[in-house]
Design a protein around this nucleic acid. Sequence first.
DNA 1: CTGAAAGCGCTAACAG
DNA 2: CTGTTAGCGCTTTCAG
Lengths: 348, 348
Amino acid sequence: MPTLNEVAAAAGVTPATVSNVLRGKGRVGEATRQRVLEAIAALGYRPHLPARALAEGRAPTIALMVSSIANPFYPEFALAVENALRRRGQFLIICNTAGDPQTGRAYLDQIAGTLSEGVLVMNANLDFEDLRMTELRGAPVVLCMWERPLDPPGLPCVAVDFRSAGELAAKHLLELGHRRIGAIVGSKVYGIHAARYDGFVDAIGAAGLDAAAAPVLYTPDTTQGGYAAALELLKAHPDLTALFTTNDLPALGAMQAAADLGLAVPGDLSVVGITDIQLARESRPALTTVAVPTVEAAELAVALLLELIEAPAARPQAAGEREARVCVTSAPHLIVRASTGQVREGSL
Amino acid sequence: MPTLNEVAAAAGVTPATVSNVLRGKGRVGEATRQRVLEAIAALGYRPHLPARALAEGRAPTIALMVSSIANPFYPEFALAVENALRRRGQFLIICNTAGDPQTGRAYLDQIAGTLSEGVLVMNANLDFEDLRMTELRGAPVVLCMWERPLDPPGLPCVAVDFRSAGELAAKHLLELGHRRIGAIVGSKVYGIHAARYDGFVDAIGAAGLDAAAAPVLYTPDTTQGGYAAALELLKAHPDLTALFTTNDLPALGAMQAAADLGLAVPGDLSVVGITDIQLARESRPALTTVAVPTVEAAELAVALLLELIEAPAARPQAAGEREARVCVTSAPHLIVRASTGQVREGSL
DNA sequence: CTGAAAGCGCTAACAG
DNA sequence: CTGTTAGCGCTTTCAG
């Protein structure tokens, strides 16, 4: 691989000049410029990114921390992130933490601030202290989908109003006449989906129903989790006419459970999810869900991160400044498909 | 961020010594060793990867080229790749080509041989010439799932015997008594799934059926593609009792089409796929499919790539050496789930 | 067993 | 407008 020096030699100029034409900085005469360009083309020169990174003191990659890229939601997000990054000349490194904070820390220690200029965090179950630490070490961190815009995490983040997503889903069921609604929350009791469930509780409370009486189950955020939870819920409460779910994967699982119990969806049971992943469109019946602006969130996250990278001055100096930036995406919106319907006659 | 020099100063040694203890090379006295280790811990030193890359002349990342990481098969593969890489101290960069050779080339030009030491290619629709070019520039390339072990591509690859996968799927249907079987091939006529279809043709030919008479449709390798193809096939040939599909996504789509046509799976129609992606387990009915050793393929691909990286001598010198390495994974195997069943009575 | 010195490929001041 | 001079942080001979 030819180096910049060789190009310079070939063009009869100094490395500095080549560097200048290469990136449009400094003033270079049109004649030399052409000569250099020709030499570059002739030798097939390509800049050596690590060398550039070293000289510039900034790395050409961003790390995306996820628990597992195989989780069906992440790739859609990662795709959007990568596209946004590429437009800005950065590359994307995928870091699977397997939900293990130790693994996450190991990653951060290795690449944050060296190979990667910044870190995007997507539900990777990382230790917040580790993230603050990496910030202090000079690598900005952005949380990609913070659940509660009103309750900032003390770390820069892109927030989605998931509470309103929960509300929208619940209201939709209420409007269809459902009164006995079960809830499946795709995380631990105090987990990340709490805001979605809060929205649900608000909405059914506002409708005059006893939110506390609505059966709820916490379960892992997976198809299987939703399946098991739905089975349990429907056996314990055969009179339920609808299931509210804090995520699409569990919703899909719930639909399978319904099928296995011989319940027709939406004839006997309505099911609603949140997120609108691809699978939601493709399932049969197609899933009614509250769409979350994934691409927008990805773009905001990238923009925010790069902004923080450019403005090192604005980074937290010490433990003092807890006024981290919060970007909020546009609002989630309901997408009615085939998994929800009017409550069946006499089901109250 | 503290540098190696600072650590050296703190420990009262030279950078070279720190470098040596850092990576267990060279001989370092136990006393100094401890002193250095302490300094490292005290300062929170972490090696600067790009600097190391520059000095060593080798980059710490591998690029994975895919058409879109959002394709449900790729993340499963990418996860396995990333795990294998991490064990060997490399990081994974995701490159989405959107199926566009131009984009692919742009990626290769930018990172192959500079930021990334090697390239893994997964159906990214890249120009083989571009790949040979990157090889010549010093960045080994490995094709991740070559379809025809007997027909090597002239580039190092991990091959999977997809022909036998097609055979297994077909034989399974035949054993269940199916005789009127439609085929849905998830790619263009001369596309990557040809081997799978060849296996199918062989098997039904061997069973004494007229393979040429079996209805076949080519379609994009997506759920929608399979859905549309199945609809068309079933309308044109209402007497079909089974559908062979070259991939799971189209198979899933075919099941949806069956549902929409009021056909019970497997009662009225059996459907079989190839790959065994996660969704295959989770669909209702669960998809019978031929499992492909994804994780094994990922590990072999990584091992092969790193081997090629370590052995620069063995790289193709010019256009001469077309004896590129081919690794074959263990054989695909049938996984019977719920989407296939005995042919229905009197259906011949 | 440890130190000194050179250089990886590139950028960034500053001089001319 | 272009050349000179220093590094960026690390590894790696080669001496001592």
